[in-house]
Write a protein that binds this DNA or RNA. Structure first.
Length: 577
DNA sequence: ACAAAGATGAGGCGCTTA
DNA sequence: TAAGCGCCTCATCTTTGT
């Protein structure tokens, strides 16, 4: 009989003083329960697209969407935290006003025209107001943002009536920052001192605000983290927005990220420290969009996406997939105990529990009269969360079937049929969550009515292709690079089953995709419209106990091939190679 | 030889509490 | 504010079974 404890058991004797065994874990061979400090049934996060009552959560939610803390605070103060719609509206107004047309901001919703070959066209001036009295409008804007009339008037006087709202708010921010020190000095000095980002201007000599200025400003405000800062994951993890909640419609892209092709990179959000900073830096300094798929379906999947896609007018795949476990698996409702308060599943992974575990849990529960004691509940819940178990009978839990995981991930049922159960779990567990990715891709549909050419790196079982197909976006040509023959076969099979009219080309290894090969494709197709890929996460994910080596790891270092290939595609398409 | 089962924590974040 | 604790994570390696 193996009685070995997990390593966490040994050093935690002090956490409980009243009851020597309060938390338990189920051990395989014995069926005996042992203390386990990790079990806690009370902390399951109930997902909600509505903000919680915590002010900091509302604040974080909007900050996570890229708005400045100051703006959000103002907006919340103005409308109250419960009125998120109004708060968002105000924030969007601020954002639009911040990007007055004479400033050289690149807003991604305006970057590309609907025509394939007009990527570099100037963006339009939609949504930008042109008031009759500019000064009056500025004053109103500042007052709306919560500044005192006197402050606003002074700021306009100091910066000049033709100053942008950005300049004025910067001035006022600086004023607030130094208020305790020497407010009067700030407002009275000819040259504005102390703070580098406070600009005073000759009204006639208007300073152009560049992207780097904005990035710098955003860094100062904590929106973009540089090397010496830790990139913070948003909470809630909704990226630029989700179908059931507030959405941001504009963002600033670095110049280097602009221009064909569109690119879309994905990996695990909870990577070791510094990884996302490196990824972002390697992909033209585009800040990652972190999204948890639990906002799209009933399973969590925390992922980061670095892309240069527009974010305005996204739309979800319909019908929306089930949002709760009960909706997705109605038959489990009958057997679901009241003390299992899960409404969402944890992340879809690559390994699943055995029938033996379910058997042990069944025995344990059968040994209880009525509702099991709390310590048993904790032990059971620990396993349920760890293995994503469902209640499929009285006291009986079971892991998800491969077909069920396919559905949860947004794939057609039996998408991976034909290979071993183990391989199916592994392939699906490594895939995109289709609804999440499709939401991001949706902006492409109207831009490419005739279809797109796709370079799909690390294709896996074709999550990107399935997402595009589900959106009704025709794929004219797809070059799919995937090392696993099993996965290549799955994609090929799906391509034929869905009667695609385009052409699918398989390659095995990203390392062998060189500039000559890319030139051939590009000249043959007329260029790629989308370069998509999620490089291996093996060395990044916390699940890996053995080789969590970061981006330098054996498999995860293939990320740099994504960068290399994307750079090549950009250069070739720009005529530089 | 192949497939399934079993054993193997660190790391990092959010929340609570002192 | 800091410390403690709960919780989660696109996994890998070895053993066992067929």
């Amino acid at each position: 009989m193996d009685e070995s404890h997990s390593s966490v058991d040994d050093n935690d004797t002090d956490w409980n003083t009243d009851d020597e065994i309060d938390n338990f874990t189920l051990l395989p061979s014995s069926g005996v329960i042992h203390p386990c400090p990790q079990a806690n049934v009370l902390s399951w996060e109930v997902s909600s697209s509505r903000p919680s009552s915590s002010n900091s959560k509302v604040l974080d939610q909007f900050i996570g969407m890229g708005f400045s803390k100051k703006m959000v605070e103002k907006a919340i103060e103005e409308h109250g935290e419960e009125n998120t719609e109004a708060v968002l509206e105000t924030l969007l107004t601020y954002s639009a006003l911040e990007s007055s047309p004479h400033e050289q901001l690149q807003m991604d919703s305006d970057l590309f025209s609907s025509d394939d070959e007009s990527f570099f066209d100037d963006f339009s001036d939609e949504d930008i107001t042109s008031p009759a009295s500019e000064e009056e409008n500025l004053l109103m804007s500042l007052i709306t943002m919560g500044y005192q009339k006197e402050e606003a008037t002074t700021a306009i006087e100091r910066c000049g009536p033709s100053s942008s709202l950005v300049e004025l708010t910067d001035f006022l921010s600086a004023a607030q920052l130094v208020k305790e020190e020497d407010l009067d000095a700030l407002f009275s000095l000819e040259e504005t001192p102390r703070l580098e980002h406070v600009h005073t201007h000759d009204p006639k000599k208007k300073r152009k605000v560049t992207v780097s200025d904005i990035l710098k400003r955003k860094r100062q405000r904590g929106h973009i983290c540089t090397d010496d800062e830790t990139l913070r994951l948003p909470n809630p993890m909704i990226g630029f927005g989700i179908p059931t909640g507030a959405c941001q419609s504009r963002r600033i892209l670095p110049n280097a990220a602009i221009g064909p092709p569109y690119f879309y990179y994905e990996n695990v959000a909870l990577a070791p420290k510094g990884v996302w900073e490196t990824i972002s830096r390697s992909l033209y300094d585009v800040p990652p969009e972190f999204v948890d798929s639990k906002h799209f379906c009933c399973a969590a999947r925390k992922r980061g996406y670095v892309h240069n896609l527009p974010i305005a007018n996204r739309f979800p795949l319909t019908p929306l997939p089930p949002q709760t476990i009960h909706e997705a698996f109605p038959l489990t409702k009958e057997w679901w105990p009241s003390w299992d308060i899960r409404t969402k599943l944890n992340c879809i992974v690559t390994c699943y529990s055995s029938a033996k575990l379910s058997e042990r849990m069944l025995k344990l529960l059968q040994g209880c009269d009525g509702i099991p004691p709390e310590r048993v509940q904790r032990a059971i819940m620990h396993e349920c969360r760890k293995w994503n178990l469902l209640w499929v009978g009285k006291n009986k839990v079971a892991p998800l079937e491969p077909g069920e995981v396919e559905i949860l991930m947004g794939f057609p049922k039996d998408h991976t049929r034909g290979v071993s159960r183990t391989d199916r779990y592994k392939s699906i567990g490594n895939a995109f969550q289709v609804h999440t990715v499709a939401y991001h891709f949706s902006v492409l549909r109207d831009k490419f009515p005739n279809g797109i050419n796709v370079l799909s790196l690390f294709s896996g079982i074709g999550g990107a292709e399935v997402a595009l197909h589900s959106l009704g976006i025709r794929m004219k040509n797809v070059v799919s690079v995937e090392i696993s023959e099993v996965n290549r076969d799955i994609v090929q099979c799906w391509w034929e089953q869905t009667e695609q009219t385009g052409k699918l080309i398989h390659l095995a290894d990203v390392k062998e995709l060189d500039s000559e090969r890319l030139k051939q494709f590009i000249h043959s197709f007329g260029g790629f419209d989308l370069v998509v890929g999620g490089s291996p996460c093996n060395n990044l994910t916390g699940s890996n106990r053995y080789h969590r080596d970061g981006l330098e790891g054996k498999e995860s270092s293939l990320f740099f091939h994504y960068c290399r290939i994307l750079d090549l595609v950009k250069s070739i398409m720009a005529g530089l190679l």
